[in-house]
Write a protein that binds this DNA or RNA. Structure first.
Lengths: 343, 343
DNA sequence: ATTAGCACTCGACGATGATGAGTGCTAACG
DNA sequence: CGTTAGCACTCATCATCGTCGAGTGCTAAT
C-alpha cells in the first residue's frame, strides 16, 4: 500500500488536530475539519489504512486515532522542509542586556520556556581548543598569592595560593616570566610530567607554588567536564496531562535537577557535529525517562571553537512548528553573539 | 480548659502517628498506641477537648483528627528543648572533598536532601563587609586588559576590558598604583562620584579604563543581590501525596526554579540575625505558595562576616526531629569549615 | 470509489448501595 | 465523678451497574 496524496492530507490533519486537543481524533472530526469533502466513512477506510501503515494507533477500540512515533516523525520531517518560519520578536530581547555569559544563557533558557511553554535547557559553551592564553601571579597580601589563568575563549579562573612567607617583587616577576614563557599557548595534553618537573626545578624553592598553579590550570581546563546547564520552565510539564501523572512528572523533574542526566543529550547532539536541528520523538530519545516526550535540540557556536547546546523538551504532541522556529532563532542569536560582542 | 499532662501525651501521640502515616488518626488507634490504658471513648472525649483548644482538626466529620498548625507548633517547640540529637554520620562526608565553594554547597544541599527525603536549599554566603582587598590590571594581549578584583572574603571577579591600542608596561604600573592606593580597603559606599572623577582625571587619557574597572567593582560588590542558591531533592515532594496534586506540585517546583522566590526566606532568616534554627509551619511561612509546607532554616557563618542560609522544605508532617538534627549538623560543619580551610 | 446505515465496542460518567472507620452522646459502672 | 460500653449517626471510599455517546467496521446501495 502506498501513502498517496489523500492519505497524506488526512494524516497531517489527524496529527494537527491531535496536537491542538490532546484527544484522540475520530473520523467525523476529520471529515469536517478538512476541505476534502469526504464523508466520515471514507475517512474511516483511509484511517484503517494509515493504521495498517503504522502512522497512527488506536488507544483502544472505538476511540479515535492518535499519531504513533512514526506518525510524528513523518509530520516533523515534512514540516522541516516546508518552511523557514521566523519568530522575529525574540531577536532583540537577548541583545538588550550586555551581561555576563551565564546571565545571558539563563536568559536564553527562560526566553525559550516563556515562548513555547515547554521545558528548556541551555548548556554553557564548552571550549574545544583548550590552550592557555595568559597566566599571572600577583601578591595579594603577605600570606596569599592570587593566580589568574585565562584559557582560549576567555574562560578565566582564579586561585588563591597560601604561602609561608612573603615573596618579593623580583621573585614574583621571575615566576611570572617562568610560567608564561613555558606554558603560554599550550594545551592540556602538552603539559606533561617532564615539563612540570623541569619547571619545578627552575623555580627552586618555589616549586610548591608552581605545583599549585599547575593544579589550578588543570582544573580550569577540565572544567567543562561538569559543565553548566541552565534550565527553565520545568514546571511547564504540568500543563500536559499526559506527562503530569506523578511517576512521570517526578522522573522528569529529577532529570532536570540532576543535570548530569541531560549530558547524554549533549553528547548525542554534539556527536554528529552537524549544524542541523535535531528532533527526537518518543523512543528515539537518548534519555530513557523521556520516552514519552519529544526533544528538539541544536548546537550553537560561540566563536573560538566553543560550542554549546540548546534544547526544548515537551510532550510528543508539541507544537513542532513553533519549537523549531524558536530554537532556530535562539541558535542564530547565540551564533552571532560572539561577533557582535567583539564589535 | 487546661492542657494537662494527659492531654499532652495524647496530643503528641496523635501528631507522631500522623507524621508516620499521613492519615487522619482516630480514637481507637490512640487507645492502643499509647500505654495510657484508656478506652477509645475516653480518648474521644479528650480529643474533643483538644479540638476545642485548637491543636487538632477534623478534615470532615467522622474522619480522624490531624494536627493544626498550632498543634505542629506545640510539637516542635516541645521537641526542640527536649533533646540535642546528633546525626554523626554526616560529619565527615562534607570534609572529604576540598573542592571549591560552589561544589561544596551543592554537595551540602544534596546531602541534606538524601538524608531527609525533603527538598533542600543552600545559599552561597553573602559578604556583609564589602571592602576592596586587592585590585590588579594586567595586559592580556594588545587589545585586552584583564582586571582582577578581590573583595573581603576572597570573592574574586574578572573583567576583560577592550582597549584601542596597546598600553606599555609603565602605564600599566601607573594605573595599578593609582587604583590600589585610592581604592584599597574602601567599601561600596565610600566610592563616590567625587573620588571617581578625581581618579579619572589623574588617569588622563586612560580615564575610560578606570571607568570600566569601577563598573566591574560595583558589579562585584552588588553581586550578592542575585545570589546563588543551590537546591536539591526537589522531586522529593512527590513522595508526599498531600503536596503532589498538580497545582501544588507545580507551584512548588516553580518556586524552586525561580530561585528569587526563595529569597524572601533568606531575608526573613537573616533579619533577626540570631543563630537559632527557625521552623515555619504552614501559614507561618513567608512564602505564600508554601503554606501547605513546613520550612526549617538556619544561618551559617563562613568567617569574615559572610553568612549564608540552609533550609529544608517538606510537608507539614515532616520528621522535625531528623530535619532539625540534619540542619544542625550541616550548619556546624559549614560554621567550622572556614577555620579548617585556613588550617 | 463513495457513502449511508447499522450493529457493535468501549470508555466516561453518574447513581446507587455496601462497607467501615470514626464520631458524639447517653447511660451504666466502680 | 471519671471512665467506659454501646449505639445511632456521618461520611469518604469503593465496587457495581446502567446509560450515553463517540467512534469503529462492515455491508449494501448509489
Amino acid at each position: 500500500m502506498e501513502l498517496d496524496e489523500r492519505k497524506t492530507v488526512i494524516l497531517k490533519a489527524i496529527i494537527k488536530n491531535y496536537l491542538e486537543t490532546g484527544e484522540p481524533v475520530g473520523s467525523r472530526t476529520i471529515s469536517k475539519y478538512t476541505d476534502l469533502n469526504l464523508s466520515s466513512a471514507t475517512i474511516r477506510n483511509e484511517m484503517a489504512d494509515l493504521e495498517e501503515l503504522g502512522f497512527i494507533v488506536q488507544p483502544h477500540t472505538s476511540a479515535g486515532r492518535i499519531p504513533s512515533d512514526k506518525g510524528y516523525r513523518f509530520y516533523v520531517d515534512s514540516m522541516m522542509q516546508e518552511h523557514e518560519k521566523e519568530v522575529e520578536q525574540l531577536k532583540d530581547v537577548l541583545l538588550e542586556r550586555e551581561e555576563k555569559l551565564d546571565h545571558m544563557l539563563k536568559q536564553a533558557a527562560k526566553l525559550m520556556a516563556v515562548n513555547t511553554n515547554y521545558a528548556t535547557m541551555v548548556t554553557a559553551p564548552r571550549n574545544s581548543r583548550n590552550t592557555i592564553k595568559f597566566l599571572q601571579l600577583s601578591r595579594m597580601d603577605d600570606a596569599h598569592i592570587l593566580a589568574v589563568i585565562v584559557i582560549e575563549g576567555n574562560v578565566i579562573k582564579n586561585t588563591v595560593i597560601d604561602v609561608e612567607e612573603a615573596l618579593n617583587d623580583e621573585t614574583m616577576l621571575k615566576l611570572n616570566i617562568l610560567l608564561n614563557t613555558h606554558l603560554n599557548g599550550l594545551s592540556a595534553e602538552e603539559i606533561n610530567l617532564g615539563l612540570i618537573s623541569s619547571l619545578k626545578q627552575q623555580a627552586g624553592m618555589y616549586g610548591p607554588i608552581i605545583a599549585e598553579v599547575i593544579d589550578a590550570v588543570a582544573e580550569t581546563i577540565k572544567e567543562d567536564e561538569d559543565l553548566e546547564i541552565y534550565t527553565s520552565g520545568t514546571n511547564n510539564i504540568f500543563k500536559y496531562p499526559e506527562l503530569s501523572d506523578n511517576q512521570k512528572a517526578s522522573d522528569l523533574i529529577n532529570a532536570f535537577e540532576e543535570k548530569q542526566l541531560l549530558t547524554q543529550l549533549i553528547d548525542d547532539t554534539n556527536e554528529e557535529g552537524s549544524d542541523e536541528i535535531k528532533v527526537y520523538i518518543g523512543e528515539e530519545s537518548p534519555i530513557q525517562t523521556m520516552k514519552d516526550c519529544s526533544i528538539v535540540t541544536a548546537n550553537y557556536e560561540f566563536g573560538d571553537g566553543m560550542r554549546g547546546m540548546i534544547g526544548i523538551i515537551g510532550p510528543k504532541r508539541m507544537d513542532y512548528d513553533k519549537v523549531v522556529g524558536t530554537i532556530k532563532t535562539i541558535k542564530s542569536q547565540l551564533d552571532t553573539m560572539y561577533r557582535k560582542d567583539e564589535k
